[in-house]
Design a protein around this nucleic acid. Sequence first.
DNA 1: GTTGTGAACGTATCAGATATGTGTGAAAGT
DNA 2: ACTTTCACACATATCTGATACGTTCACAAC
Lengths: 258, 258
Amino acid sequence: MPHRQGIMVDTSRGGRDAESEQSGESRTANVVRHLEALIFDGDLQPGQFLPSEGELAAEMGVSRLTVREGVRTLEARGLLEVRRGRRPAVAHPNAAPLSGFFAASLRRDPRNLLELVEVRLALEVHATTLAAQHATRTALTSLELAFDTMRQATDEESFNQADVRFHAMLAAASGNQMISFLIEAMDEPMHESRLRSLRGHLARGRSMDDIMDEHARILAAVRERDARAAAEAMREHLVQTRMDLRAFLALPTGDGQG
Amino acid sequence: MPHRQGIMVDTSRGGRDAESEQSGESRTANVVRHLEALIFDGDLQPGQFLPSEGELAAEMGVSRLTVREGVRTLEARGLLEVRRGRRPAVAHPNAAPLSGFFAASLRRDPRNLLELVEVRLALEVHATTLAAQHATRTALTSLELAFDTMRQATDEESFNQADVRFHAMLAAASGNQMISFLIEAMDEPMHESRLRSLRGHLARGRSMDDIMDEHARILAAVRERDARAAAEAMREHLVQTRMDLRAFLALPTGDGQG
DNA sequence: GTTGTGAACGTATCAGATATGTGTGAAAGT
DNA sequence: ACTTTCACACATATCTGATACGTTCACAAC
Protein backbone atom coordinates (compact mmCIF):
# COMPACT_ATOMS: atom_id res chain seq x y z
CA MET A 1 0.00 0.00 0.00
CA PRO A 2 1.78 3.08 -1.19
CA HIS A 3 2.09 6.25 0.83
CA ARG A 4 -1.09 6.95 2.68
CA GLN A 5 -1.24 9.32 5.54
CA GLY A 6 -3.52 10.86 8.08
CA ILE A 7 -7.15 9.95 7.64
CA MET A 8 -6.86 9.55 3.85
CA VAL A 9 -9.43 6.83 3.59
CA ASP A 10 -9.44 4.80 0.42
CA THR A 11 -13.19 4.38 0.51
CA SER A 12 -13.76 7.47 -1.57
CA ARG A 13 -16.79 5.76 -3.04
CA GLY A 14 -18.22 2.35 -3.20
CA GLY A 15 -17.16 0.82 -6.47
CA ARG A 16 -14.20 2.68 -7.81
CA ASP A 17 -12.23 0.61 -10.25
CA ALA A 18 -8.55 0.91 -9.54
CA GLU A 19 -7.59 -0.24 -13.01
CA SER A 20 -7.22 3.19 -14.51
CA GLU A 21 -4.59 4.16 -11.97
CA GLN A 22 -1.05 3.15 -12.65
CA SER A 23 0.54 2.86 -9.26
CA GLY A 24 3.99 3.08 -10.81
CA GLU A 25 3.40 6.64 -11.89
CA SER A 26 2.97 9.74 -9.83
CA ARG A 27 -0.49 10.80 -8.83
CA THR A 28 -0.14 13.92 -10.91
CA ALA A 29 0.53 11.75 -13.96
CA ASN A 30 -2.64 9.84 -13.20
CA VAL A 31 -4.54 13.09 -12.93
CA VAL A 32 -3.15 14.18 -16.28
CA ARG A 33 -4.34 10.98 -17.92
CA HIS A 34 -7.71 11.30 -16.27
CA LEU A 35 -8.10 14.84 -17.55
CA GLU A 36 -6.95 13.84 -21.01
CA ALA A 37 -9.62 11.16 -21.00
CA LEU A 38 -12.21 13.75 -20.08
CA ILE A 39 -11.05 16.03 -22.85
CA PHE A 40 -10.59 13.49 -25.60
CA ASP A 41 -12.98 10.68 -24.81
CA GLY A 42 -15.53 12.58 -22.79
CA ASP A 43 -18.21 14.36 -24.70
CA LEU A 44 -16.88 17.79 -23.83
CA GLN A 45 -16.75 20.21 -26.69
CA PRO A 46 -14.22 23.05 -26.81
CA GLY A 47 -15.42 25.82 -24.55
CA GLN A 48 -17.27 23.53 -22.20
CA PHE A 49 -16.31 23.29 -18.57
CA LEU A 50 -14.74 20.52 -16.56
CA PRO A 51 -15.78 19.82 -12.99
CA SER A 52 -14.23 22.17 -10.48
CA GLU A 53 -10.86 21.40 -8.95
CA GLY A 54 -12.54 20.34 -5.76
CA GLU A 55 -14.90 17.97 -7.50
CA LEU A 56 -12.13 16.47 -9.57
CA ALA A 57 -10.05 16.01 -6.45
CA ALA A 58 -12.89 14.23 -4.73
CA GLU A 59 -13.59 12.05 -7.76
CA MET A 60 -10.01 10.90 -8.04
CA GLY A 61 -9.18 10.66 -4.38
CA VAL A 62 -6.35 13.17 -4.47
CA SER A 63 -5.94 16.63 -3.05
CA ARG A 64 -6.81 19.79 -4.88
CA LEU A 65 -3.11 20.56 -5.11
CA THR A 66 -2.47 17.48 -7.20
CA VAL A 67 -5.39 18.30 -9.46
CA ARG A 68 -4.02 21.78 -9.93
CA GLU A 69 -0.67 20.47 -11.09
CA GLY A 70 -2.34 18.27 -13.64
CA VAL A 71 -4.49 21.16 -14.81
CA ARG A 72 -1.41 23.35 -15.16
CA THR A 73 0.25 20.73 -17.30
CA LEU A 74 -2.66 20.49 -19.68
CA GLU A 75 -2.94 24.24 -19.77
CA ALA A 76 0.67 24.45 -20.89
CA ARG A 77 -0.10 21.90 -23.58
CA GLY A 78 -2.87 24.09 -24.86
CA LEU A 79 -5.65 21.68 -23.96
CA LEU A 80 -7.25 23.60 -21.11
CA GLU A 81 -8.08 27.21 -20.52
CA VAL A 82 -7.84 28.27 -16.93
CA ARG A 83 -9.24 31.54 -15.66
CA ARG A 84 -9.50 32.56 -12.08
CA GLY A 85 -12.92 32.19 -10.59
CA ARG A 86 -14.15 29.94 -13.40
CA ARG A 87 -13.92 26.25 -13.84
CA PRO A 88 -11.32 24.93 -16.29
CA ALA A 89 -12.59 24.89 -19.85
CA VAL A 90 -11.63 22.69 -22.76
CA ALA A 91 -9.58 24.88 -25.06
CA HIS A 92 -10.30 25.30 -28.73
CA PRO A 93 -7.50 23.81 -30.81
CA ASN A 94 -4.80 26.44 -30.95
CA ALA A 95 -1.21 26.96 -31.98
CA ALA A 96 0.05 28.23 -28.64
CA PRO A 97 2.15 25.16 -27.85
CA LEU A 98 3.82 25.35 -31.23
CA SER A 99 4.41 29.04 -30.81
CA GLY A 100 5.99 28.40 -27.44
CA PHE A 101 8.25 25.78 -28.90
CA PHE A 102 9.49 27.95 -31.72
CA ALA A 103 9.93 30.95 -29.46
CA ALA A 104 11.91 28.90 -26.98
CA SER A 105 14.10 27.50 -29.72
CA LEU A 106 14.92 30.99 -30.91
CA ARG A 107 15.60 32.29 -27.44
CA ARG A 108 17.91 29.40 -26.75
CA ASP A 109 19.90 29.97 -29.89
CA PRO A 110 19.21 32.79 -32.34
CA ARG A 111 21.00 30.82 -35.03
CA ASN A 112 17.91 28.65 -35.17
CA LEU A 113 16.32 31.48 -37.10
CA LEU A 114 17.75 30.27 -40.36
CA GLU A 115 16.48 26.78 -39.64
CA LEU A 116 13.02 28.15 -38.99
CA VAL A 117 13.13 29.99 -42.28
CA GLU A 118 13.75 26.69 -44.02
CA VAL A 119 10.79 25.09 -42.27
CA ARG A 120 8.65 27.99 -43.27
CA LEU A 121 9.76 27.74 -46.85
CA ALA A 122 8.90 24.06 -47.02
CA LEU A 123 5.48 24.55 -45.45
CA GLU A 124 4.48 27.67 -47.34
CA VAL A 125 5.43 26.29 -50.72
CA HIS A 126 3.32 23.24 -50.08
CA ALA A 127 0.50 25.32 -48.65
CA THR A 128 0.52 27.36 -51.84
CA THR A 129 0.21 24.23 -53.92
CA LEU A 130 -2.75 23.12 -51.85
CA ALA A 131 -4.30 26.58 -51.95
CA ALA A 132 -4.16 26.67 -55.74
CA GLN A 133 -5.88 23.30 -55.81
CA HIS A 134 -8.48 23.66 -53.11
CA ALA A 135 -9.05 27.31 -52.22
CA THR A 136 -12.70 28.23 -51.76
CA ARG A 137 -14.08 31.39 -53.23
CA THR A 138 -14.28 33.11 -49.85
CA ALA A 139 -10.71 32.13 -49.06
CA LEU A 140 -9.63 33.69 -52.34
CA THR A 141 -11.49 36.86 -51.50
CA SER A 142 -9.74 37.12 -48.14
CA LEU A 143 -6.44 36.61 -49.88
CA GLU A 144 -7.12 39.38 -52.35
CA LEU A 145 -8.20 41.64 -49.54
CA ALA A 146 -4.95 41.04 -47.70
CA PHE A 147 -3.06 41.79 -50.88
CA ASP A 148 -4.83 45.11 -51.28
CA THR A 149 -4.08 45.99 -47.68
CA MET A 150 -0.42 45.35 -48.37
CA ARG A 151 -0.50 47.62 -51.36
CA GLN A 152 -2.08 50.44 -49.39
CA ALA A 153 0.28 50.15 -46.45
CA THR A 154 2.28 53.28 -45.80
CA ASP A 155 4.66 52.55 -42.94
CA GLU A 156 6.91 49.59 -42.34
CA GLU A 157 4.91 48.18 -39.45
CA SER A 158 1.53 48.10 -41.15
CA PHE A 159 3.08 46.68 -44.28
CA ASN A 160 4.58 43.90 -42.27
CA GLN A 161 1.29 43.24 -40.60
CA ALA A 162 -0.49 42.99 -43.92
CA ASP A 163 2.27 40.74 -45.23
CA VAL A 164 1.82 38.38 -42.31
CA ARG A 165 -1.90 38.37 -42.97
CA PHE A 166 -1.42 37.57 -46.64
CA HIS A 167 0.65 34.53 -45.80
CA ALA A 168 -1.79 33.50 -43.09
CA MET A 169 -4.71 33.75 -45.51
CA LEU A 170 -2.79 31.72 -48.03
CA ALA A 171 -2.17 29.03 -45.45
CA ALA A 172 -5.82 29.10 -44.51
CA ALA A 173 -6.75 28.77 -48.18
CA SER A 174 -4.85 25.50 -48.27
CA GLY A 175 -7.63 24.05 -46.16
CA ASN A 176 -5.03 22.35 -43.99
CA GLN A 177 -5.39 23.60 -40.44
CA MET A 178 -2.23 21.90 -39.27
CA ILE A 179 -0.18 23.89 -41.75
CA SER A 180 -2.03 27.04 -40.75
CA PHE A 181 -1.18 26.45 -37.11
CA LEU A 182 2.46 25.85 -37.86
CA ILE A 183 2.78 29.00 -39.93
CA GLU A 184 0.81 31.06 -37.46
CA ALA A 185 2.98 29.73 -34.67
CA MET A 186 6.07 31.05 -36.40
CA ASP A 187 4.70 34.54 -36.90
CA GLU A 188 5.27 35.85 -33.42
CA PRO A 189 8.74 34.45 -32.83
CA MET A 190 9.82 35.63 -36.27
CA HIS A 191 8.32 39.09 -36.05
CA GLU A 192 11.64 40.76 -35.32
CA SER A 193 13.37 38.93 -38.10
CA ARG A 194 10.79 40.16 -40.59
CA LEU A 195 11.73 43.74 -39.98
CA ARG A 196 15.37 42.80 -40.33
CA SER A 197 14.64 40.95 -43.50
CA LEU A 198 13.03 44.09 -44.86
CA ARG A 199 16.07 46.15 -43.98
CA GLY A 200 18.32 43.58 -45.61
CA HIS A 201 16.09 43.74 -48.65
CA LEU A 202 16.68 47.43 -49.04
CA ALA A 203 20.35 46.99 -48.28
CA ARG A 204 20.53 44.69 -51.26
CA GLY A 205 19.35 47.58 -53.37
CA ARG A 206 15.92 46.13 -53.98
CA SER A 207 12.65 48.00 -53.64
CA MET A 208 9.24 47.42 -52.11
CA ASP A 209 7.80 46.99 -55.58
CA ASP A 210 9.81 43.81 -55.98
CA ILE A 211 8.07 42.38 -52.96
CA MET A 212 4.66 43.40 -54.25
CA ASP A 213 5.45 41.83 -57.60
CA GLU A 214 6.36 38.57 -55.96
CA HIS A 215 3.12 38.53 -54.04
CA ALA A 216 1.14 39.51 -57.10
CA ARG A 217 2.57 36.56 -58.99
CA ILE A 218 1.62 34.19 -56.17
CA LEU A 219 -1.89 35.57 -55.98
CA ALA A 220 -2.38 35.40 -59.73
CA ALA A 221 -1.25 31.81 -59.97
CA VAL A 222 -3.47 30.74 -57.08
CA ARG A 223 -6.39 32.53 -58.63
CA GLU A 224 -5.79 30.75 -61.92
CA ARG A 225 -5.48 27.48 -60.01
CA ASP A 226 -2.05 26.85 -61.49
CA ALA A 227 -0.56 24.90 -58.61
CA ARG A 228 2.88 24.47 -60.09
CA ALA A 229 3.28 28.15 -60.96
CA ALA A 230 1.92 29.22 -57.58
CA ALA A 231 4.34 26.98 -55.71
CA GLU A 232 7.21 28.21 -57.82
CA ALA A 233 6.27 31.84 -57.26
CA MET A 234 6.11 31.27 -53.53
CA ARG A 235 9.43 29.49 -53.55
CA GLU A 236 11.07 32.35 -55.37
CA HIS A 237 9.58 34.84 -52.97
CA LEU A 238 10.82 32.95 -49.93
CA VAL A 239 14.24 32.40 -51.42
CA GLN A 240 14.45 36.16 -51.89
CA THR A 241 13.33 36.69 -48.32
CA ARG A 242 15.96 34.27 -47.11
CA MET A 243 18.60 36.21 -49.00
CA ASP A 244 17.28 39.44 -47.53
CA LEU A 245 17.66 38.02 -44.05
CA ARG A 246 21.17 36.79 -44.76
CA ALA A 247 22.00 40.21 -46.13
CA PHE A 248 20.84 41.78 -42.90
CA LEU A 249 22.81 39.31 -40.80
CA ALA A 250 25.88 40.26 -42.82
CA LEU A 251 25.30 43.99 -42.32
CA PRO A 252 27.87 45.71 -40.09
CA THR A 253 25.15 46.94 -37.73
CA GLY A 254 23.29 43.69 -37.57
CA ASP A 255 26.25 41.49 -36.85
CA GLY A 256 26.44 40.94 -33.15
CA GLN A 257 22.80 41.69 -32.58
CA GLY A 258 20.80 38.70 -31.32
CA MET B 1 -1.20 47.03 -2.30
CA PRO B 2 -2.46 43.76 -3.74
CA HIS B 3 -3.43 40.77 -1.66
CA ARG B 4 -0.95 40.25 1.13
CA GLN B 5 -1.74 38.09 4.05
CA GLY B 6 -0.35 36.84 7.33
CA ILE B 7 3.22 37.79 8.07
CA MET B 8 4.20 37.80 4.37
CA VAL B 9 6.84 40.45 4.71
CA ASP B 10 7.88 42.21 1.55
CA THR B 11 11.43 42.73 2.78
CA SER B 12 12.59 39.43 1.35
CA ARG B 13 16.01 40.98 0.85
CA GLY B 14 17.57 44.37 0.96
CA GLY B 15 17.59 45.67 -2.58
CA ARG B 16 15.10 43.71 -4.59
CA ASP B 17 13.88 45.59 -7.60
CA ALA B 18 10.17 45.23 -8.05
CA GLU B 19 10.35 46.07 -11.73
CA SER B 20 10.59 42.51 -12.91
CA GLU B 21 7.25 41.67 -11.36
CA GLN B 22 4.14 42.56 -13.30
CA SER B 23 1.53 43.07 -10.67
CA GLY B 24 -1.21 42.68 -13.25
CA GLU B 25 -0.31 39.05 -13.82
CA SER B 26 -0.62 36.13 -11.50
CA ARG B 27 2.28 35.20 -9.30
CA THR B 28 2.63 31.95 -11.13
CA ALA B 29 3.07 33.88 -14.37
CA ASN B 30 5.81 35.89 -12.72
CA VAL B 31 7.47 32.71 -11.58
CA VAL B 32 7.31 31.34 -15.11
CA ARG B 33 9.00 34.43 -16.47
CA HIS B 34 11.62 34.29 -13.76
CA LEU B 35 12.39 30.68 -14.54
CA GLU B 36 12.51 31.41 -18.27
CA ALA B 37 15.04 34.13 -17.54
CA LEU B 38 17.13 31.65 -15.59
CA ILE B 39 16.98 29.14 -18.42
CA PHE B 40 17.52 31.49 -21.34
CA ASP B 41 19.51 34.40 -20.00
CA GLY B 42 21.19 32.70 -17.09
CA ASP B 43 24.34 30.81 -17.83
CA LEU B 44 22.76 27.45 -17.21
CA GLN B 45 23.60 24.82 -19.77
CA PRO B 46 21.24 21.94 -20.53
CA GLY B 47 21.61 19.35 -17.81
CA GLN B 48 22.52 21.84 -15.13
CA PHE B 49 20.39 22.33 -12.06
CA LEU B 50 18.24 25.19 -10.91
CA PRO B 51 17.97 26.15 -7.27
CA SER B 52 15.64 23.95 -5.28
CA GLU B 53 11.96 24.78 -5.07
CA GLY B 54 12.43 26.07 -1.56
CA GLU B 55 15.27 28.36 -2.54
CA LEU B 56 13.41 29.68 -5.54
CA ALA B 57 10.36 30.31 -3.37
CA ALA B 58 12.45 32.27 -0.89
CA GLU B 59 14.19 34.25 -3.63
CA MET B 60 10.95 35.29 -5.23
CA GLY B 61 8.90 35.78 -2.11
CA VAL B 62 6.24 33.24 -3.01
CA SER B 63 5.27 29.90 -1.58
CA ARG B 64 6.67 26.61 -2.79
CA LEU B 65 3.30 25.80 -4.24
CA THR B 66 3.50 28.72 -6.63
CA VAL B 67 7.01 27.77 -7.65
CA ARG B 68 5.85 24.25 -8.31
CA GLU B 69 3.12 25.43 -10.64
CA GLY B 70 5.62 27.43 -12.62
CA VAL B 71 8.00 24.52 -12.77
CA ARG B 72 5.20 22.25 -13.99
CA THR B 73 4.40 24.69 -16.75
CA LEU B 74 7.97 24.79 -18.00
CA GLU B 75 8.24 21.05 -17.70
CA ALA B 76 5.20 20.70 -19.96
CA ARG B 77 6.87 23.06 -22.41
CA GLY B 78 9.91 20.82 -22.51
CA LEU B 79 12.23 23.34 -20.89
CA LEU B 80 12.75 21.66 -17.53
CA GLU B 81 13.28 18.12 -16.41
CA VAL B 82 11.84 17.33 -13.02
CA ARG B 83 12.69 14.20 -11.11
CA ARG B 84 11.72 13.44 -7.58
CA GLY B 85 14.44 13.97 -5.05
CA ARG B 86 16.56 16.03 -7.45
CA ARG B 87 16.51 19.68 -8.21
CA PRO B 88 14.91 20.76 -11.50
CA ALA B 89 17.32 20.56 -14.42
CA VAL B 90 17.44 22.53 -17.65
CA ALA B 91 16.27 20.13 -20.35
CA HIS B 92 18.18 19.47 -23.52
CA PRO B 93 16.28 20.75 -26.54
CA ASN B 94 13.74 18.09 -27.40
CA ALA B 95 10.72 17.45 -29.54
CA ALA B 96 8.39 16.40 -26.73
CA PRO B 97 6.17 19.49 -26.93
CA LEU B 98 5.73 19.04 -30.66
CA SER B 99 5.00 15.39 -30.18
CA GLY B 100 2.38 16.25 -27.59
CA PHE B 101 0.76 18.73 -29.91
CA PHE B 102 0.51 16.33 -32.83
CA ALA B 103 -0.68 13.50 -30.62
CA ALA B 104 -3.37 15.71 -29.12
CA SER B 105 -4.49 16.88 -32.54
CA LEU B 106 -4.91 13.30 -33.68
CA ARG B 107 -6.74 12.26 -30.55
CA ARG B 108 -9.10 15.17 -30.89
CA ASP B 109 -9.93 14.36 -34.46
CA PRO B 110 -8.50 11.37 -36.32
CA ARG B 111 -9.27 13.12 -39.60
CA ASN B 112 -6.28 15.31 -38.85
CA LEU B 113 -4.18 12.36 -39.91
CA LEU B 114 -4.43 13.31 -43.56
CA GLU B 115 -3.43 16.86 -42.70
CA LEU B 116 -0.40 15.60 -40.84
CA VAL B 117 0.56 13.51 -43.82
CA GLU B 118 0.62 16.68 -45.91
CA VAL B 119 2.84 18.43 -43.39
CA ARG B 120 5.14 15.48 -43.39
CA LEU B 121 5.30 15.49 -47.16
CA ALA B 122 6.23 19.15 -47.29
CA LEU B 123 8.92 18.81 -44.66
CA GLU B 124 10.43 15.59 -45.87
CA VAL B 125 10.67 16.70 -49.46
CA HIS B 126 12.49 19.82 -48.39
CA ALA B 127 14.66 17.87 -45.95
CA THR B 128 15.66 15.60 -48.79
CA THR B 129 16.70 18.58 -50.88
CA LEU B 130 18.82 19.86 -48.03
CA ALA B 131 20.26 16.44 -47.38
CA ALA B 132 21.39 16.07 -50.97
CA GLN B 133 23.08 19.44 -50.71
CA HIS B 134 24.63 19.30 -47.27
CA ALA B 135 24.81 15.72 -46.00
CA THR B 136 28.09 14.89 -44.29
CA ARG B 137 29.84 11.61 -44.98
CA THR B 138 28.88 10.18 -41.60
CA ALA B 139 25.27 11.17 -42.13
CA LEU B 140 25.30 9.37 -45.45
CA THR B 141 26.75 6.29 -43.83
CA SER B 142 23.98 6.28 -41.22
CA LEU B 143 21.43 6.61 -43.98
CA GLU B 144 22.87 3.67 -45.89
CA LEU B 145 22.93 1.64 -42.71
CA ALA B 146 19.27 2.35 -42.10
CA PHE B 147 18.52 1.32 -45.67
CA ASP B 148 20.29 -1.98 -45.22
CA THR B 149 18.38 -2.60 -42.01
CA MET B 150 15.15 -2.06 -43.89
CA ARG B 151 16.18 -4.56 -46.52
CA GLN B 152 16.97 -7.20 -43.95
CA ALA B 153 13.79 -6.73 -41.98
CA THR B 154 11.64 -9.82 -41.77
CA ASP B 155 8.48 -8.90 -39.92
CA GLU B 156 6.20 -5.93 -40.32
CA GLU B 157 7.14 -4.31 -37.05
CA SER B 158 10.90 -4.32 -37.55
CA PHE B 159 10.48 -3.14 -41.12
CA ASN B 160 8.44 -0.23 -39.93
CA GLN B 161 11.01 0.58 -37.30
CA ALA B 162 13.79 0.62 -39.89
CA ASP B 163 11.65 2.71 -42.19
CA VAL B 164 11.14 5.30 -39.46
CA ARG B 165 14.86 5.29 -38.84
CA PHE B 166 15.62 5.82 -42.52
CA HIS B 167 13.45 8.89 -42.64
CA ALA B 168 14.87 10.16 -39.36
CA MET B 169 18.41 9.76 -40.65
CA LEU B 170 17.47 11.57 -43.80
CA ALA B 171 16.06 14.44 -41.78
CA ALA B 172 19.22 14.47 -39.68
CA ALA B 173 21.29 14.54 -42.85
CA SER B 174 19.58 17.78 -43.79
CA GLY B 175 21.52 19.42 -41.00
CA ASN B 176 18.38 21.23 -39.92
CA GLN B 177 17.51 20.25 -36.37
CA MET B 178 14.16 21.99 -36.45
CA ILE B 179 13.03 19.80 -39.32
CA SER B 180 14.41 16.76 -37.52
CA PHE B 181 12.40 17.59 -34.43
CA LEU B 182 9.22 18.08 -36.39
CA ILE B 183 9.57 14.79 -38.23
CA GLU B 184 10.58 12.95 -35.08
CA ALA B 185 7.60 14.45 -33.29
CA MET B 186 5.25 12.97 -35.86
CA ASP B 187 6.68 9.46 -35.61
CA GLU B 188 4.97 8.41 -32.43
CA PRO B 189 1.52 9.81 -33.15
CA MET B 190 1.63 8.36 -36.67
CA HIS B 191 2.94 4.95 -35.69
CA GLU B 192 -0.44 3.31 -35.96
CA SER B 193 -1.14 4.91 -39.28
CA ARG B 194 2.09 3.54 -40.69
CA LEU B 195 0.96 0.00 -40.14
CA ARG B 196 -2.33 0.87 -41.74
CA SER B 197 -0.60 2.49 -44.63
CA LEU B 198 1.33 -0.71 -45.14
CA ARG B 199 -1.85 -2.73 -45.16
CA GLY B 200 -3.40 -0.33 -47.63
CA HIS B 201 -0.29 -0.67 -49.74
CA LEU B 202 -0.78 -4.40 -50.03
CA ALA B 203 -4.49 -3.92 -50.56
CA ARG B 204 -3.64 -1.86 -53.60
CA GLY B 205 -1.83 -4.88 -54.99
CA ARG B 206 1.61 -3.44 -54.52
CA SER B 207 4.55 -5.25 -52.97
CA MET B 208 7.27 -4.54 -50.47
CA ASP B 209 9.76 -4.37 -53.29
CA ASP B 210 8.06 -1.23 -54.55
CA ILE B 211 8.72 0.45 -51.25
CA MET B 212 12.33 -0.62 -51.26
CA ASP B 213 12.74 0.68 -54.80
CA GLU B 214 11.36 4.05 -53.79
CA HIS B 215 13.78 4.28 -50.91
CA ALA B 216 16.66 3.10 -53.06
CA ARG B 217 15.97 5.88 -55.52
CA ILE B 218 15.97 8.45 -52.75
CA LEU B 219 19.20 7.14 -51.31
CA ALA B 220 20.93 7.04 -54.68
CA ALA B 221 19.96 10.61 -55.54
CA VAL B 222 21.10 11.91 -52.18
CA ARG B 223 24.38 10.02 -52.54
CA GLU B 224 24.92 11.57 -55.94
CA ARG B 225 24.01 14.95 -54.49
CA ASP B 226 21.29 15.45 -57.04
CA ALA B 227 18.95 17.58 -54.98
CA ARG B 228 16.21 17.85 -57.55
CA ALA B 229 16.07 14.12 -58.23
CA ALA B 230 16.22 13.33 -54.53
CA ALA B 231 13.34 15.64 -53.73
CA GLU B 232 11.31 14.23 -56.59
CA ALA B 233 11.98 10.66 -55.47
CA MET B 234 10.89 11.50 -51.95
CA ARG B 235 7.79 13.23 -53.19
CA GLU B 236 6.81 10.24 -55.25
CA HIS B 237 7.39 7.94 -52.31
CA LEU B 238 5.24 10.04 -50.01
CA VAL B 239 2.51 10.42 -52.58
CA GLN B 240 2.42 6.65 -52.82
CA THR B 241 2.29 6.40 -49.03
CA ARG B 242 -0.55 8.86 -48.97
CA MET B 243 -2.45 6.78 -51.46
CA ASP B 244 -1.73 3.67 -49.40
CA LEU B 245 -3.23 5.34 -46.38
CA ARG B 246 -6.29 6.46 -48.30
CA ALA B 247 -6.68 2.94 -49.58
CA PHE B 248 -6.66 1.62 -46.04
CA LEU B 249 -9.17 4.19 -44.91
CA ALA B 250 -11.43 3.08 -47.74
CA LEU B 251 -11.09 -0.60 -46.80
CA PRO B 252 -14.27 -2.17 -45.44
CA THR B 253 -12.50 -3.15 -42.22
CA GLY B 254 -10.75 0.10 -41.68
CA ASP B 255 -13.73 2.29 -42.15
CA GLY B 256 -15.17 3.13 -38.79
CA GLN B 257 -11.94 2.49 -36.97
CA GLY B 258 -10.47 5.58 -35.34
C1' DG C 1 -37.36 46.50 -17.24
C1' DT C 2 -33.04 47.75 -15.60
C1' DT C 3 -29.70 47.92 -12.36
C1' DG C 4 -27.22 47.00 -8.28
C1' DT C 5 -25.80 43.82 -4.74
C1' DG C 6 -24.62 39.98 -2.08
C1' DA C 7 -24.23 35.05 -1.40
C1' DA C 8 -22.39 30.89 -3.47
C1' DC C 9 -18.94 29.08 -5.88
C1' DG C 10 -14.35 28.80 -7.82
C1' DT C 11 -9.62 29.65 -8.31
C1' DA C 12 -5.00 31.67 -6.41
C1' DT C 13 -2.06 31.43 -2.93
C1' DC C 14 -0.24 30.86 1.67
C1' DA C 15 1.43 28.00 5.81
C1' DG C 16 2.88 23.92 7.84
C1' DA C 17 3.24 18.82 7.80
C1' DT C 18 4.35 14.01 6.38
C1' DA C 19 6.04 10.49 3.07
C1' DT C 20 9.47 9.04 0.20
C1' DG C 21 13.15 9.26 -3.44
C1' DT C 22 18.48 10.73 -4.10
C1' DG C 23 23.01 11.56 -3.18
C1' DT C 24 26.85 11.65 0.03
C1' DG C 25 30.06 10.64 3.28
C1' DA C 26 31.11 8.00 7.36
C1' DA C 27 31.37 3.54 9.27
C1' DA C 28 31.99 -1.20 8.63
C1' DG C 29 33.61 -5.18 6.42
C1' DT C 30 36.79 -7.49 3.37
C1' DA D 1 43.42 0.07 0.50
C1' DC D 2 39.05 -0.86 -1.50
C1' DT D 3 34.39 -1.79 -1.50
C1' DT D 4 29.93 -2.06 0.57
C1' DT D 5 26.32 -0.41 3.68
C1' DC D 6 23.80 2.66 6.04
C1' DA D 7 22.22 6.76 8.07
C1' DC D 8 21.40 11.51 7.31
C1' DA D 9 20.72 15.77 4.88
C1' DC D 10 18.25 17.42 1.19
C1' DA D 11 14.64 17.53 -2.37
C1' DT D 12 10.44 16.56 -4.28
C1' DA D 13 5.43 14.63 -3.91
C1' DT D 14 1.45 15.12 -1.68
C1' DC D 15 -1.93 16.14 2.10
C1' DT D 16 -4.68 19.33 5.24
C1' DG D 17 -6.75 23.53 6.28
C1' DA D 18 -7.15 28.47 5.60
C1' DT D 19 -7.58 33.10 3.51
C1' DA D 20 -8.05 36.35 -0.44
C1' DC D 21 -10.20 37.58 -4.36
C1' DG D 22 -12.47 36.99 -9.19
C1' DT D 23 -17.19 35.22 -11.44
C1' DT D 24 -21.72 34.29 -11.70
C1' DC D 25 -26.45 34.51 -10.89
C1' DA D 26 -30.58 35.17 -8.50
C1' DC D 27 -33.12 38.54 -6.19
C1' DA D 28 -34.36 42.87 -4.54
C1' DA D 29 -34.74 47.82 -5.28
C1' DC D 30 -35.81 51.37 -8.20
